[in-house]
Amino acid sequence: MATANQIFEEMMRAGEKAFGEGWHAVANYAPTEFRKMAIQITEIAQNVAKYKLDKSEGYSPETGKILMKMQRTAAESVLVATTQLNLIAVQKAMDAVYKVLRKAFKGIVKSIL
């Protein structure tokens, strides 16, 4: 079974390739969430294994399957949020540039009219 660290490293590589330049904008959020996912996936496997040894411990494989579906949903949430965080950074940069342009442009217009 892959370790949490191996899963995490793989996710980080995939994320970096998928987001390219924009990766740095989400560098704080995405790695934290990917690490949580890697730990949670191994926890699910451990809890199902515990249940198989002792029915009063952990949880059943059926519950484990639903929890894995939940983890895929959480992965989608993180990917969508990451995209949005990228865009918010771009939007803020655009707004700043726009503000400067508008100020400069108005000055020029005033001086020639």
């Binding site: 969430e33 996912m37 939940m70 959480a74 949430s77 993180v78 969508v80 949020a81 965080l85």
Partner: peptide, 11 residues
């Protein structure tokens, strides 16, 4: 796991 999805909205 659910908190990751909730956190995504909040973040």
């Amino acid at each position: 796991i659910a908190n990751q999805s909730i956190n995504a909205v909040a973040v």
